[in-house]
Amino acid sequence: MFDDLELINMSVRILRFGSLLYEHTWRRYVGLTMCTFIISTQLYYMFRTTEGIDAVIKNSYTLVLWLNTVLRGYLLLQDREKYEQLLSDMKSLYDALKKSKDFYIQQLLIEVNSTGKYMARANLFLGLCTCFGFSIYPLFAVDRALPFGSMIPGVDEYKSPFYELWYIYQVVATPMGCCMYIPYTSLIVACIMFGIVMCKSLQFRLKTLRRMKCDDLTVQKNITECIQYQLRIIDYITRLNGLTTYIFLLEFLAFGALLCALLFLLLSVDSMAQAIIICAYITMILAQILAIYWHANELREQNLAIAAAAYDTEWFSFPIPVQKHILLMILRTHKPAAIMIGNIHPITMELFQALLNASYTYFTLLKRVYT
């Protein structure tokens, strides 16, 4: 379906295999049911545990990951038609750009396909490595342990054969969760990357407009098409933001706290293997957040750059109606379409820096209190 659109092809195929997009099979029920049951046992554990703060921090991290994973799965099912329509429109927009004879636009498409493909593979590899870390973490514990802290009412999960069965259950469910969580992130980042390509293609068309020797009617027609394309970009970004804004708000709140907690957990590890696994957890958080924030920031910047490209058309030399149209384009970019955090604040690198600063501040506070 998206064979020539490589930046989303791999992610869509995985989500389709899990029956979260385009298909309705038993696989969606198996994956979501197994993951939901793990969350229920983790929540029961968090309310009943008497373990130390290091165990609570580690299991809080995994609980947030599982909650985020299952939330993404259910939201995908709830808004499945909206996601599929967005991807269908993205394919139409991609095909329209692909028909362009401009070398610059063709290079943009080649670059975004290559970057999106390798990003999806790298994210999936990192996610599977983290799954492997979860699975082998109990092997380095002094006593019996499970990949995820959990309690089942009426069952002692640390006694045989319950321990072995529950361990296998968690190990099997972990890749299922990974194949819901990682492809979703890669898919959203790929959609943002394509939005950047659309903005750059509009800038290119505006910059080349002043070099075209044509009559006033042709110029007005080209400007009208540019305005229509700008509206399509705004509509595309607005719809993408509507599907993701509250998920990003949850991640912003949860991952900031967990990053702080995992840094604190590094102070109390017993072995080098545990330290490496915790570093892998931190790396996964930073990689996921940075991929989203970097490209969302770039998307906003490219929207702002449309104004500069419109101004560089030497609009003041065009007929009055064309000047008005160009000025309207410039005015619209003063409120750039962007991916938002809970529809409150645009996602930027400044926000990412603020998140890191806040996490480190609370980490130093925890360090002073508990050491």
Score class of each variant (00 low, 15 high):
Met90Asn: 10
Lys91Tyr: 13
Lys91Asp: 10
Lys91Glu: 15
Lys91Gln: 14
Lys91Asn: 12
Lys91Leu: 13
Lys91Val: 07
Ser92Gly: 06
Leu93Glu: 15
Ala96Tyr: 15
Leu97Glu: 02
Lys98Arg: 15
Lys99Ile: 03
Ser100Val: 08
Ser100Ile: 05
Lys101His: 07
Asp102His: 08
Asp102Lys: 13
Phe103His: 12
Tyr104Gly: 02
Ile105Pro: 06
Gln106Arg: 11
Gln106Lys: 15
Leu108Ile: 02
Leu108Pro: 01
Ile110Cys: 09
Val112Glu: 10
Val112Cys: 09
Asn113Gly: 09
Ser114Tyr: 11
Ser114His: 14
Thr115Trp: 07
Thr115Lys: 15
Gly116Phe: 02
Lys117Glu: 05
Lys117Val: 05
Tyr118Ala: 00
Tyr118Phe: 14
Met119Trp: 11
Ala120Arg: 05
Phe125Cys: 10
Phe125Asp: 03
Leu126Ala: 08
Leu126Ser: 04
Cys129His: 06
Cys129Ala: 10
Thr130Asn: 09
Thr130Val: 13
Phe134Leu: 08
Ile136Pro: 00
Tyr137Pro: 01
Tyr137Lys: 11
Tyr137Arg: 10
Tyr137Leu: 04
Leu139Pro: 00
Phe140Cys: 03
Val142Asn: 13
Asp143Cys: 06
Asp143Tyr: 11
Asp143Trp: 07
Asp143Gly: 11
Arg144Tyr: 14
Phe148Met: 11
Pro153His: 06
Gly154Trp: 00
Gly154Cys: 07
Gly154Leu: 07
Val155Asn: 04
Val155Leu: 14
Val155Ile: 15
Asp156Gln: 07
Tyr158Asn: 01
Lys159Gln: 14
Lys159Glu: 12
Phe162Gln: 13
Tyr163Asp: 03
Glu164Ser: 01
Glu164Lys: 04
Trp166Ala: 00
Trp166Thr: 02
Tyr169His: 04
Val171Thr: 04
Val171His: 05
Val172Ile: 15
Ala173Met: 10
Ala173His: 05
Thr174Arg: 06
Gly177Asp: 00
Cys179Trp: 13
Cys179Pro: 07
